[in-house]
Design a protein around this nucleic acid. Sequence first.
DNA 1: GCGACAG
DNA 2: ATCTTGTCGC
Length: 250
Amino acid sequence: MRLQRQGETLAGQPWPVDAAAFPGWDGTVAGAFALQAQLAESLLLRDDFRTPLRRIAGVDVGFEDEGRTTRAAAVLLDADTLQPLTEVIARRATTMPYVPGLLSFRELPAVVAALSALPQVPDLVVCDGQGIAHPRRLGIAAHVGIATGLPTLGAAKKRLVGVHDAVGPQRSDRTPLLDARSQEPIGWVLRSKDGCNPLIVSPGHRVSLATSVELVLRWTRRYRLPEPTRLADRLASRRGGSASPQHSLL
DNA sequence: GCGACAG
DNA sequence: ATCTTGTCGC
Protein backbone atom coordinates (compact mmCIF):
# COMPACT_ATOMS: atom_id res chain seq x y z
CA MET A 1 0.00 0.00 0.00
CA ARG A 2 1.30 3.42 -0.79
CA LEU A 3 1.11 6.85 0.72
CA GLN A 4 -2.20 8.57 1.13
CA ARG A 5 -2.91 12.26 0.84
CA GLN A 6 -5.54 14.23 2.71
CA GLY A 7 -9.02 13.63 1.36
CA GLU A 8 -8.11 10.45 -0.45
CA THR A 9 -9.01 6.90 0.30
CA LEU A 10 -6.77 3.91 0.75
CA ALA A 11 -6.92 3.38 -3.02
CA GLY A 12 -5.93 6.96 -3.76
CA GLN A 13 -9.35 7.97 -5.04
CA PRO A 14 -12.69 8.73 -3.32
CA TRP A 15 -15.11 5.81 -3.16
CA PRO A 16 -18.44 5.84 -5.02
CA VAL A 17 -20.92 7.62 -2.77
CA ASP A 18 -24.38 6.26 -1.98
CA ALA A 19 -26.16 9.61 -1.68
CA ALA A 20 -29.28 8.04 -0.17
CA ALA A 21 -27.47 6.15 2.57
CA PHE A 22 -24.70 8.66 3.27
CA PRO A 23 -26.05 12.17 2.68
CA GLY A 24 -23.32 14.73 2.18
CA TRP A 25 -20.44 12.27 2.18
CA ASP A 26 -17.63 13.11 -0.23
CA GLY A 27 -16.32 9.58 -0.45
CA THR A 28 -13.12 10.21 1.49
CA VAL A 29 -11.91 8.72 4.75
CA ALA A 30 -11.82 12.13 6.39
CA GLY A 31 -15.38 12.78 5.27
CA ALA A 32 -16.53 9.43 6.61
CA PHE A 33 -14.95 10.11 9.99
CA ALA A 34 -16.69 13.49 10.20
CA LEU A 35 -20.05 12.00 9.22
CA GLN A 36 -19.72 9.26 11.84
CA ALA A 37 -18.91 11.75 14.59
CA GLN A 38 -21.84 13.89 13.56
CA LEU A 39 -24.34 11.02 13.36
CA ALA A 40 -23.21 9.65 16.71
CA GLU A 41 -24.47 12.82 18.35
CA SER A 42 -28.02 11.77 17.52
CA LEU A 43 -27.80 8.45 19.34
CA LEU A 44 -30.25 7.95 22.19
CA LEU A 45 -28.58 5.80 24.83
CA ARG A 46 -31.66 5.21 26.98
CA ASP A 47 -34.24 2.46 26.74
CA ASP A 48 -36.84 3.70 24.30
CA PHE A 49 -38.59 0.72 22.77
CA ARG A 50 -41.91 -1.08 22.91
CA THR A 51 -42.44 -3.24 26.02
CA PRO A 52 -42.94 -6.03 26.15
CA LEU A 53 -40.90 -6.61 23.01
CA ARG A 54 -42.84 -8.69 20.52
CA ARG A 55 -40.86 -9.10 17.36
CA ILE A 56 -37.12 -8.61 17.10
CA ALA A 57 -34.79 -8.92 14.13
CA GLY A 58 -31.27 -10.11 13.53
CA VAL A 59 -29.17 -8.96 10.56
CA ASP A 60 -25.86 -10.08 9.12
CA VAL A 61 -23.93 -9.88 5.87
CA GLY A 62 -22.15 -12.31 3.60
CA PHE A 63 -20.51 -11.98 0.18
CA GLU A 64 -20.79 -13.61 -3.24
CA ASP A 65 -18.84 -13.40 -6.49
CA GLU A 66 -15.51 -13.09 -4.74
CA GLY A 67 -16.89 -10.11 -2.84
CA ARG A 68 -18.47 -8.26 -5.74
CA THR A 69 -21.97 -8.81 -4.34
CA THR A 70 -23.00 -8.01 -0.77
CA ARG A 71 -25.74 -10.26 0.59
CA ALA A 72 -27.60 -9.11 3.70
CA ALA A 73 -29.93 -11.39 5.62
CA ALA A 74 -32.61 -10.24 8.05
CA VAL A 75 -34.55 -12.62 10.28
CA LEU A 76 -37.66 -11.61 12.18
CA LEU A 77 -38.36 -13.66 15.29
CA ASP A 78 -40.79 -13.85 18.15
CA ALA A 79 -39.19 -12.03 21.08
CA ASP A 80 -40.45 -14.61 23.59
CA THR A 81 -40.06 -17.97 21.88
CA LEU A 82 -37.18 -16.81 19.65
CA GLN A 83 -38.77 -18.81 16.85
CA PRO A 84 -38.03 -17.38 13.39
CA LEU A 85 -41.09 -15.85 11.75
CA THR A 86 -39.65 -14.57 8.48
CA GLU A 87 -36.32 -14.55 6.68
CA VAL A 88 -35.36 -12.23 3.84
CA ILE A 89 -32.24 -11.64 1.77
CA ALA A 90 -31.19 -8.48 -0.07
CA ARG A 91 -28.33 -8.14 -2.53
CA ARG A 92 -26.37 -5.03 -3.50
CA ALA A 93 -23.24 -4.46 -5.58
CA THR A 94 -20.27 -4.09 -3.22
CA THR A 95 -18.81 -0.59 -3.51
CA MET A 96 -16.37 -0.29 -0.65
CA PRO A 97 -13.51 -2.41 0.69
CA TYR A 98 -13.42 -3.45 4.32
CA VAL A 99 -11.71 -0.81 6.43
CA PRO A 100 -11.66 -1.24 10.23
CA GLY A 101 -13.84 1.52 11.65
CA LEU A 102 -15.75 2.04 8.40
CA LEU A 103 -17.63 -1.25 8.27
CA SER A 104 -21.05 0.38 8.05
CA PHE A 105 -20.10 2.25 4.88
CA ARG A 106 -19.60 -1.14 3.25
CA GLU A 107 -22.57 -3.04 4.68
CA LEU A 108 -25.27 -0.52 5.60
CA PRO A 109 -27.03 -0.23 2.21
CA ALA A 110 -27.65 -3.97 1.97
CA VAL A 111 -28.60 -4.24 5.63
CA VAL A 112 -31.19 -1.47 5.40
CA ALA A 113 -32.57 -3.05 2.23
CA ALA A 114 -33.01 -6.37 4.00
CA LEU A 115 -34.70 -4.79 7.02
CA SER A 116 -37.03 -2.90 4.69
CA ALA A 117 -38.01 -6.15 3.01
CA LEU A 118 -39.34 -7.61 6.27
CA PRO A 119 -43.15 -7.83 6.28
CA GLN A 120 -43.33 -6.20 9.71
CA VAL A 121 -41.23 -3.59 11.49
CA PRO A 122 -39.19 -5.16 14.33
CA ASP A 123 -39.27 -3.62 17.81
CA LEU A 124 -35.49 -3.92 18.06
CA VAL A 125 -32.65 -5.01 15.78
CA VAL A 126 -29.58 -7.03 16.77
CA CYS A 127 -26.56 -6.46 14.53
CA ASP A 128 -23.39 -8.52 14.04
CA GLY A 129 -20.75 -5.94 14.98
CA GLN A 130 -20.17 -3.01 17.32
CA GLY A 131 -22.72 -0.47 18.52
CA ILE A 132 -21.05 2.47 20.30
CA ALA A 133 -17.92 0.43 21.08
CA HIS A 134 -16.30 2.20 18.17
CA PRO A 135 -13.61 4.92 17.72
CA ARG A 136 -16.26 7.55 16.95
CA ARG A 137 -19.17 5.78 18.67
CA LEU A 138 -20.79 4.72 15.42
CA GLY A 139 -20.28 1.02 14.83
CA ILE A 140 -22.63 -0.63 12.35
CA ALA A 141 -25.33 -1.28 14.97
CA ALA A 142 -25.39 2.39 15.95
CA HIS A 143 -25.40 3.47 12.30
CA VAL A 144 -28.27 1.11 11.49
CA GLY A 145 -30.18 2.65 14.38
CA ILE A 146 -29.70 6.19 13.10
CA ALA A 147 -30.42 5.17 9.51
CA THR A 148 -33.67 3.37 10.34
CA GLY A 149 -34.72 5.08 13.54
CA LEU A 150 -35.15 1.64 15.13
CA PRO A 151 -33.80 0.54 18.52
CA THR A 152 -30.57 -1.42 17.91
CA LEU A 153 -27.69 -3.10 19.71
CA GLY A 154 -24.50 -4.76 18.59
CA ALA A 155 -23.21 -8.23 19.47
CA ALA A 156 -19.71 -8.61 17.98
CA LYS A 157 -17.47 -11.65 18.01
CA LYS A 158 -14.35 -9.56 18.42
CA ARG A 159 -13.25 -6.27 20.00
CA LEU A 160 -12.55 -3.23 17.88
CA VAL A 161 -11.61 -0.72 20.60
CA GLY A 162 -11.71 -0.43 24.36
CA VAL A 163 -9.99 -2.04 27.32
CA HIS A 164 -11.27 -4.49 29.90
CA ASP A 165 -10.40 -6.88 32.70
CA ALA A 166 -10.49 -10.64 32.39
CA VAL A 167 -13.97 -12.16 32.11
CA GLY A 168 -15.27 -14.95 34.32
CA PRO A 169 -15.59 -18.45 32.79
CA GLN A 170 -19.31 -18.97 33.30
CA ARG A 171 -22.18 -18.04 31.03
CA SER A 172 -23.50 -14.58 31.97
CA ASP A 173 -20.15 -13.50 33.45
CA ARG A 174 -19.31 -10.04 32.16
CA THR A 175 -16.96 -7.12 32.58
CA PRO A 176 -17.33 -3.54 31.33
CA LEU A 177 -15.58 -2.47 28.14
CA LEU A 178 -14.06 0.97 28.76
CA ASP A 179 -12.82 3.71 26.50
CA ALA A 180 -9.04 3.45 26.80
CA ARG A 181 -8.63 7.20 27.27
CA SER A 182 -11.71 8.49 29.09
CA GLN A 183 -12.36 5.25 30.96
CA GLU A 184 -16.03 5.69 30.13
CA PRO A 185 -18.05 2.49 29.68
CA ILE A 186 -18.83 1.80 26.01
CA GLY A 187 -20.00 -1.79 26.19
CA TRP A 188 -19.51 -5.22 27.74
CA VAL A 189 -17.39 -8.28 27.33
CA LEU A 190 -19.91 -11.06 27.88
CA ARG A 191 -19.39 -14.79 28.31
CA SER A 192 -22.50 -15.90 26.42
CA LYS A 193 -21.58 -19.58 26.64
CA ASP A 194 -19.28 -21.70 28.82
CA GLY A 195 -16.02 -22.56 27.17
CA CYS A 196 -16.41 -20.02 24.37
CA ASN A 197 -14.75 -16.70 23.66
CA PRO A 198 -16.74 -13.77 25.02
CA LEU A 199 -18.95 -11.48 22.93
CA ILE A 200 -18.50 -7.73 22.76
CA VAL A 201 -21.91 -6.16 23.41
CA SER A 202 -22.79 -2.49 23.13
CA PRO A 203 -25.92 -0.43 22.62
CA GLY A 204 -26.68 1.05 19.25
CA HIS A 205 -29.68 3.38 19.36
CA ARG A 206 -32.54 3.75 21.85
CA VAL A 207 -31.08 1.09 24.17
CA SER A 208 -29.11 1.63 27.39
CA LEU A 209 -25.77 0.15 28.27
CA ALA A 210 -27.33 -1.88 31.09
CA THR A 211 -30.16 -3.25 28.98
CA SER A 212 -27.97 -4.19 26.02
CA VAL A 213 -26.27 -7.03 27.91
CA GLU A 214 -29.44 -8.26 29.53
CA LEU A 215 -31.14 -8.57 26.16
CA VAL A 216 -28.24 -10.39 24.53
CA LEU A 217 -28.05 -12.81 27.43
CA ARG A 218 -31.82 -13.35 27.34
CA TRP A 219 -31.71 -14.11 23.64
CA THR A 220 -28.77 -16.48 23.77
CA ARG A 221 -29.69 -20.17 24.03
CA ARG A 222 -27.34 -23.04 23.35
CA TYR A 223 -24.91 -21.24 21.07
CA ARG A 224 -22.37 -18.48 21.49
CA LEU A 225 -24.29 -16.01 19.36
CA PRO A 226 -27.74 -14.69 20.32
CA GLU A 227 -30.51 -16.27 18.20
CA PRO A 228 -31.29 -13.18 16.09
CA THR A 229 -27.73 -12.82 14.87
CA ARG A 230 -27.05 -16.56 14.76
CA LEU A 231 -29.95 -17.18 12.41
CA ALA A 232 -29.14 -14.19 10.21
CA ASP A 233 -25.53 -15.35 10.09
CA ARG A 234 -26.53 -18.79 8.86
CA LEU A 235 -28.66 -17.29 6.12
CA ALA A 236 -26.13 -14.70 5.03
CA SER A 237 -23.35 -17.28 4.95
CA ARG A 238 -25.37 -19.67 2.81
CA ARG A 239 -25.40 -22.29 5.48
CA GLY A 240 -28.45 -24.21 6.56
CA GLY A 241 -29.43 -25.85 9.81
CA SER A 242 -33.04 -26.61 10.55
CA ALA A 243 -36.30 -26.04 8.81
CA SER A 244 -37.84 -22.60 9.07
CA PRO A 245 -39.80 -20.14 6.94
CA GLN A 246 -37.86 -19.13 3.82
CA HIS A 247 -39.45 -16.04 2.35
CA SER A 248 -36.55 -15.02 0.16
CA LEU A 249 -37.04 -11.72 -1.61
CA LEU A 250 -34.62 -10.63 -4.33
C1' DG B 1 8.28 3.89 14.90
C1' DC B 2 5.58 -0.43 16.26
C1' DG B 3 1.25 -2.92 16.95
C1' DA B 4 -3.95 -3.20 16.73
C1' DC B 5 -7.55 -3.35 13.72
C1' DA B 6 -15.82 -5.20 13.88
C1' DG B 7 -16.89 -7.98 9.15
C1' DA C 1 -15.91 -11.72 5.31
C1' DT C 2 -13.91 -16.05 2.56
C1' DC C 3 -10.99 -20.28 1.27
C1' DT C 4 -11.23 -25.49 3.91
C1' DT C 5 -9.99 -31.24 6.96
C1' DG C 6 -9.30 -32.91 10.63
C1' DT C 7 -9.26 -32.65 15.47
C1' DC C 8 -9.72 -31.70 20.54
C1' DG C 9 -13.19 -31.03 24.21
C1' DC C 10 -17.69 -30.18 26.59
